[in-house]
Each structure stands twice: as structure tokens, then as C-alpha cells.
């Protein structure tokens, strides 16, 4: 439907019914300071009673308000996910800072986890950025990113902007003064998800299962601990974000179950790229990209031996987790908490 197709409906149907059909329209009216209206009147009837000067402050006359309202309804009735399903992304190598070519062609599919390792300043963020802007040999690295095996057309490249990729980093905080429940409801509303109550409930339950310490629905998001915040962000990104690709820049190792967090993200058919030096996470990935001097030096597939090592690392991690819980519970850490290591 085009914007004009809504005009007939808007002119004939009382605003109360319009608002029930298109719940978001309430925001449009509020933005125009028209939030207290007689719901049995149509929008044109309502506008007849509104002082022209007030409309003029918004730069509109009565007809333009109706047109803009229709455009609003059209924009928010479009198919929810304009981001099409992504079955793979492919990174075609460019060159490093010295101009040496990267001999890489790496395809990643949903449910796969790829970690990115390399010293600070080596170019990890640059790689994440190339993916975000769907680089076409036109960024400093000259890399090319393919979507579903082919070159994304320019339109898609621009329209997908910001929607393709969700990002998580440990510098991120909540700044809204809302409770966990209000926060999740607000996000669900912006995604226009029907049955949002169930999604909010699920998101909350999952976030709590990741967090070392539990929190409630009426906790303010700004009062959550680092681990709790991260848990909520991960659950929210997995279940409520529309973006098919998730870029993670380090996950704290305190107060959050990292294994479950990664499982949750891939379980929701996301493509996960993770910049990390945490062995637990880096080895959990299917592959890892090694960055050196601005370029992809190599791609390592996690070996069977590494997977065995991972089990040992997990054992060490759970020992530490156990000690942390002892501390949290006010206990005294016993020497036996740590098993003797074999000398060899």
C-alpha cells in the first residue's frame, strides 16, 4: 500500500478506530501535540478545531498533516523485516597495512561463531567495520563482503545500514531511566512485535539464567551490575534485535555465563563474530581469524586437540566460578577449592 491509499481510510474512520488498527499512530499524534483528541471524530474533523498557528509551528497545514500521517502509517506498516534473510556472508581478502594481499576467502553461515584475535591496534575493529558497511573494495583494506554469495546491490548496502549488524561491547551501558520490564517493552514496541508480553517474559528469563546474580523485572536497568547488564544485553540482542549478524567486542568474564551466552546467540541463527582473547570464547568458536598489521594473517579452524584443551579450560573456569560464588556467599575459600595440578 502507498501512503495515499491510507488517505480514504483516515478521512472516513474515526481516529479511535485508526489508533486501534495502528497502535503506533498514537506517537505521531503525540509528536504533533495532538494527544488528547475526541476519538469519535476523524482526523480531518479534529484538525478543523486545531489552531492553524499550532500546525504552522510544525511547518504543516491541515492537508499536509493528513498526508504526513498517511506516510507515517505506510512507513510503519511495511513488512516488518526489510532485512532479508541472510544465509551467508563471505569475506574476500584485501590487503594489510604494508599492502601485502590477504589470501583469504571466508564464508560464515548463521549458527557459526568466528573469533577474531590479534594485538590491540592490529585492525580487528577495521574488519568488523568492513562487515558492517558491506565493504566493496572501497575501504582502506580493499576487502569485499558478499551476502548470500553475491555482491549486494548499492541500494541494499545503504538501506541495510545499521540494521544488518548488532554490536555488543564491554564499554556499553544502559542510559535509559527505565525498569528492566519497561526497557524490554520499549524495545519490543520498536520492533513492532506482536505478543510482546511473551517475548519480554522470555528475554527476562534468559537474561537471568545468564547472570551470576539474579535481578527482578522492576530493577532499574541503570542499577544492574556489569554482569547483569551484559546478560540483559545479550538476551535482548539474541531475542529482540532484528540484526542477523552480531559483532562482539570482548565479553567480561565476571558475573556472566559466557558459554551459555554464545550458545544462546548461535541458537537464534545469528552469525556471531567475536573479538576476544578469552581462551574459553576463542576456542569455542568454529574458526578464528588472526589479524596482524591490519590484515588477516590466517584463519585457523579449531582443532580436535584444542577442543580437548577447551574442556580443561572449562574445568579451570568452573573452579574459579565456584570460588567466586563462595566469596559472594560470604564463605571462606578453602585450599581444597583448587585441585593439585600434575607436575610433568
Amino acid at each position: 500500500m502507498k501512503a495515499l491509499d491510507y488517505a480514504a481510510e483516515v478521512s472516513a474512520v474515526p481516529i479511535g478506530d485508526i489508533l486501534r488498527r495502528y497502535p503506533l499512530a498514537v506517537d505521531y499524534l503525540a509528536n504533533m501535540r495532538l494527544d488528547r483528541v475526541d476519538e469519535f471524530k476523524t482526523l480531518p474533523e479534529i484538525l478543523e478545531d486545531v489552531d492553524e498557528d499550532i500546525l504552522e509551528e510544525f511547518g504543516l497545514d491541515r492537508e499536509e498533516v493528513i498526508f504526513h500521517f498517511c506516510a507515517f502509517l505506510e512507513a510503519f506498516s511495511r513488512k516488518r523485516d526489510s532485512v532479508e534473510a541472510i544465509s551467508s556472508i563471505t569475506i574476500l581478502g584485501g590487503r594489510d597495512k604494508a599492502g601485502r594481499p590477504e589470501m583469504v576467502e571466508l564464508t560464515i553461515t548463521p549458527g557459526e561463531v568466528v573469533s577474531i584475535v590479534g594485538p590491540t591496534g592490529s585492525g580487528k575493529s577495521r574488519l568488523l567495520e568492513d562487515i558492517e558497511c558491506l565493504a566493496q573494495r572501497d575501504t582502506p583494506t580493499a576487502r569485499q563482503i558478499l551476502i548470500n554469495g553475491s555482491v549486494p546491490d548499492l541500494d541494499k548496502r545503504f538501506s541495510a545500514g545499521g540494521k544488518l549488524v548488532a554490536q555488543l561491547s564491554q564499554n556499553m551501558n544502559f542510559v535509559m531511566d527505565l525498569t528492566v520490564q519497561e526497557f524490554l517493552e520499549m524495545h519490543a514496541k520498536s520492533r513492532m512485535i506482536s505478543g510482546s508480553a511473551a517475548v519480554v517474559e522470555k528475554c527476562f528469563a534468559v537474561a537471568n539464567s545468564l547472570a551470576g546474580e539474579k535481578f527482578t523485572l522492576d530493577t532499574k536497568v541503570t542499577q544492574l551490575s556489569g554482569g547483569q547488564s551484559r546478560s540483559l544485553m545479550i538476551a535482548d540482542t539474541a531475542l529482540l534485535s532484528s540484526s542477523p549478524i552480531i559483532l562482539i567486542d570482548e565479553l567480561e568474564n565476571a558475573g556472566i555465563d559466557r558459554r551459555e551466552a554464545v550458545k544462546l546467540l548461535v541458537g537464534n541463527e545469528k552469525i556471531v563474530l567475536m573479538s576476544t582473547h578469552d581462551p574459553l570464547l576463542a576456542l569455542r568458536a568454529d574458526k578464528r581469524i588472526v589479524i596482524r598489521n591490519g590484515g588477516i594473517a590466517k584463519v585457523i579452524e579449531t582443532t580436535a586437540e584444542e577442543e580437548q584443551t577447551l574442556q580443561k579450560i572449562e574445568a579451570i573456569d568452573s573452579i574459579l566460578l565456584d570460588i567466586r560464588n563462595q566469596l559472594r556467599g560470604g564463605g571462606v575459600v578453602a585450599k581444597e577449592s583448587i585441585p593439585e595440578f600434575q607436575e610433568n
Binding site: A75, G162, Q167, L168, S169, M172, N173, V175, S229, S241
Partner: peptide, 17 residues
């Protein structure tokens, strides 16, 4: 880079409104 993904998405949504 300093706020959550959800806040970025809600912010962008409010812009589109």
C-alpha cells in the same frame, strides 16, 4: 558505542517516527 544495542534500535525507531 557506549549504549546498548536496544537503546540504539529504539533511538533509531524514534527518529523514524
Amino acid at each position: 558505542d557506549v549504549v546498548s544495542q536496544a537503546e540504539r534500535e529504539v533511538f533509531a525507531f524514534n527518529i523514524r517516527e
